[in-house]
């Protein structure tokens, strides 16, 4: 299989960057997209060129470290998938595949396809946890949690923090990411004591990090590898209002 990659190259954060085209041969349809990039990189080394830097780790769709824009879509042509789970069989022989890093002010490019997503960590730092010290827990079954609530919580707790929601949003909003963590913790009895402060702190940090506001275009939920629903943003907004009123 042969394709033409058009890939964003940018040597450093201050470098302007540009697209470069690479003809790649010797691929097969069962290769993953990232394996095709590995393959290209080996060729580049032997041609004495610098390799394309891209982020990846687990390559099974759960760590959230990979993620690029492929032909104008976050994580490529399929819905609810990560870049590492995309295979070359999803592309046509001989066609151009355009590959770019996440584009968002809050995610500056470090090199080539690698961006800095530490803004997500700082949102979690501002309340994305339950303040309980190791060693202070009571018997787990002492606090029952209904199966329906546990399931709903799991739906949002599944967020892998890849940043596709931000990258695909025209406003570069982190509302889906932030709401997932808020709704996860605030829906559980264990998270109740800090619920109001959590919403206020996490949303304040989100605003500080150069993310845009949510205008409910719904683009995020289409690209979210875990299929996290945009309803979570509405729920977060309701929780925010409640926190403002009742704190």
């Amino acid at each position: 299989m042969k394709v033409r990659f058009k890939i964003w190259r940018q040597d450093s954060p201050i470098d302007k960057g540009s697209f470069k085209v690479y003809e790649v041969d010797g691929l097969n349809p069962d290769m993953s997209f990232l394996e095709a990039l590995d393959h290209l990189n080996e060729k580049l080394v032997l041609r004495n060129e610098k390799v394309i830097a891209f982020d990846h780790d687990c390559r099974e769709g759960i760590c959230g470290q990979c993620g690029v824009f492929i032909n104008g879509r976050a994580h490529g042509p399929h819905e609810n998938t990560t870049t590492c789970q995309l295979h070359m069989r999803s592309f046509e022989e001989g066609k151009v595949i355009v590959v770019e890093p996440w584009r968002a002010k809050a995610f500056p490019v470090i090199k080539d396809l690698i961006v800095d997503r530490s803004a997500f960590d700082r949102i979690i730092e501002h309340g994305g946890y339950i303040s309980a010290k190791t060693g202070t827990a009571s018997e787990a079954n002492a606090i029952p949690v209904g199966k329906d609530i546990a399931e709903r919580v799991m739906d949002v707790a599944a967020c892998i923090g890849c940043g596709a929601c931000v990258a695909t949003c025209k406003n570069s909003s982190a509302a889906l990411f932030t709401s997932a963590k808020i709704n996860h913790l605030n829906s559980l009895p264990q998270g109740k004591p800090e619920e109001h402060q959590r919403v206020l702190d996490m949303t304040a940090q989100m605003a500080k990090e150069d993310f845009g506001h949510c205008t409910f275009t719904g683009a995020c939920e289409v690209e979210c590898p875990e299929g996290i629903s945009i309803n979570n943003i509405a729920e977060m907004n309701a929780r925010f209002l409640k926190a403002k009123l009742f704190r």
Binding site: Y129, I130, A132, A140, V145, A150, Q190
Partner: peptide, 9 residues
């Protein structure tokens, strides 16, 4: 459980 892990119920 205290930390908010949504174990199956």
């Amino acid at each position: 459980t205290q930390q908010g892990v949504p174990f199956a119920r």
